[in-house]
């Protein structure tokens, strides 16, 4: 990180804050997320993936920019739309695909699948199938850091739907009362399944909820990598300083339906197409090229790298062994 840029620097926060290699890696991971989601969708249609899944295509900037400054010691809690968070936090797509394919080599040994994808080694405490389920857990993780005197922070991803769960309010209140190092990151993609935020939520911006719990709240363009990175950066600084939690709302959009069973009756084609013109990856890529971080050829190479990684990951997953049927109760308790 190079935050020693002059005050007159008018370049976007990310460009002036992170090293070119970091930015290139961020772009690579955003491509990786996009290609991963597309690969998962393709595998799903080929019948390789059991059950359903929730794709985050269109939300890559929110995931990646939020995780930009996190180390493996920092924790995240994720949501049912959590593939992007997992990759942004540093997971291996091969093991993720293996998990989706229900294989023993998957991150959860085939027990969790898409909705519980996790990588504890990189600090990802797991996606959660329960809306709002990760909020109190994130506060608990932050409590651990504070209690043990570590300067780790916890980022709690949640969607706009979760802001109406009781757990959201209880968690934000406790985090604030105890001044815990947690950053609540709301990915507001406009819909809780089919219900528009405007129909479900009394406040105009979800970040407005922050004032009720005496913490900073900010709403940013979630498809603007730099805007997200800047907002989360401020929250992390505050958290590491012991000043307590923050709420960051990333306004974004999912290109795909809620899940694979969504028939898209609640959104217009025009609305979706309009949001697709605001592709966060294309936007970040142009920004990097415009600021001379890389050129078109280098950007294409990054995209190709991501594509190759996804293809290798799918091949790895396909060739991996399934769990033994007799092991159905394995991992229920530590002793088995």
């Amino acid at each position: 990180m190079t935050s020693d840029a002059p005050a007159t620097d008018n370049r976007p926060f990310a460009i002036r804050t992170y090293a070119p290699a970091q930015l290139r890696e961020a772009l690579r991971r955003m491509y990786l997320i996009r290609r991963f989601e597309e690969g998962a969708e393709d595998s799903y249609m080929r019948g390789l993936i059991h059950g359903t899944m929730h794709l985050s295509i269109g939300q890559e900037a929110s995931a990646m920019a939020t995780c930009m400054e996190l180390t493996d010691a920092d924790k995240i809690t994720s949501t049912h739309r959590g593939h992007g968070h997992c990759i942004a936090k540093g997971a291996d797509v091969g093991r993720m695909f293996a998990e989706f394919f229900g294989k023993e080599t998957g991150y959860c040994h085939g027990r969790g699948g898409s909705m519980h994808i996790a990588d504890v080694r990189t600090g990802n405490l797991g996606a959660n199938g329960i809306v709002g389920g990760g909020l109190p857990i994130a506060v608990g993780a932050a409590l651990t850091a504070k209690r043990l005197g570590r300067d780790d922070v916890t980022v709690c991803f949640f969607g706009d739907g979760a802001n109406n769960e009781g757990a959201f309010h209880e968690a934000l209140n406790m985090a604030s009362v105890w001044k815990l190092p947690v950053i609540f990151v709301c990915e507001n993609n406009g819909y809780g399944m089919s219900t528009a935020v405007t129909r479900s939520t009394a406040v105009r911006h979800i970040a407005d909820r922050a004032s009720a719990y005496s913490m900073p709240g900010i709403t940013v363009d979630g498809n603007d990598f730099s805007a997200v990175a800047e907002a989360v950066h401020a929250a992390i600084v505050r958290a590491r300083a012991g000043d307590g939690p923050s709420l960051v709302e990333n306004v974004t959009y999912r290109w795909r339906g809620h899940s694979k069973s969504d028939r898209n009756r609640y959104r217009t084609k025009e609305e979706i197409e309009e949001w697709m013109t605001r592709d966060p990856i294309a936007r970040f890529r142009s920004e990097l090229i415009a600021h001379g971080i890389l050129d078109e050829a280098a950007a294409d190479a990054v995209a190709a790298e991501a594509m190759a990684e996804v293809e290798a990951g799918i091949a790895f997953a396909k060739s991996s062994p399934a769990p033994a049927i007799g092991d159905v109760t394995r991992y229920v308790y530590a002793e088995n």
């Binding site: 109190p136 857990i137 506060v139 608990g140 993780a141 209880e170 968690a171 209140n173 406790m174």
Partner: peptide, 15 residues
Amino acid sequence: LGGAGVAVGAALTGL
């Protein structure tokens, strides 16, 4: 709900 969840998260991370 929140209190139990904080305890779960704390347990998950080392307390």
